[in-house]
Amino acid sequence: MDQLLQALVNGLLLGGFYGVMVLGFSVIWGVMGVINLAHGEFVMIGAYFAWVLNRSLGIDPFLSLIVIMPVMFFVGWLLQRVLINRIVERPHLIALLVTFGLSIALANLFKLFFTADPRTVPVSYNGSFELAGLTFPIVKTIVFGLSLVVMLALHIFLQYTRLGKSIRAAAQNKEAARIVGVEVGRVYAITFGICIALTAAAGAMVSTTIPVFPFMGPPFTLKAFTITALGGLGRIPGALLGGIILGVVETLVAIMVPGVGTNLGIATSFVLLVVILIVRPQGLLKGLRPMEVT
């Protein structure tokens, strides 16, 4: 029972991180209709960014978010202007192929610069504390807390600010948004920038708990896809809920299948994905745009 409860806690902590990791993917898909297969690579870039800052300047990975997010916002903005803008209104397939190419190029570019050796980002407060008989690893708890803050901030931004409202307007009906004076191109670029910044931030946070290497990306892309299918496109509460479901299922599989550990994380995620897509093709929750799977 204790073990089960502990697994639930671990799954919950993991799920919070998944929630923030998936935001960028989910919002880009929801707003622009682009499935970004290079999503995991931006997690990887964020993680390397934190590693570099930590190694060269000794900056704490959580503190380095202040630097990483603005820089990656600009990177995302530029990328949207140069590349993604050309594929937004084309068929899904074009976007998939282009972002697939991007993911291969980015992963191997980083292998070129940083070699394939796994890196770790050390933090001084690497311990755990007990609460009500359950163990909470400090780093993972910080990641969870920060994730919640980020999600809340994005939610408020999308719901209540003028820019957030134009982003949602562009997602719901591009033509109508144009008519009422939303500059859709600009809104797309800003959205992409925000999403890349968030994704990189997730990468920087996760660099404290898992090894960082150039090919760490694809599992994140796949998990992001599963969570988005669970939580609906572009919905932040949905992202959190989907993330927690996946996190809990993954941890439960890890304790129930002996001798496997977390090695079946992707397989679990994949089975979950196929089941959702077949049982509920429109996604578990309603998103910014319908999924139209079959």
Binding site: I35, L37, H92, L93, L96, P218, P219, T221, L222, F225, V260, N263, L264, G265, I266, A267, S269, F270, V271, L273, V274, L277, I278, P281, M291, E292, V293, T294
Partner: peptide, 28 residues
């Protein structure tokens, strides 16, 4: 049987998932 019922993009991702998952399963 399950994945080809999905529309194009979903099939693409499901196959990417099959690929990554099989690598894990073979390793396990």
């Amino acid at each position: 049987l399950p994945t080809l019922r999905l529309k194009g993009p979903y099939f693409s991702i499901a196959m990417l998932g099959t690929f990554v998952a099989m690598r894990e399963i073979v390793r396990v």
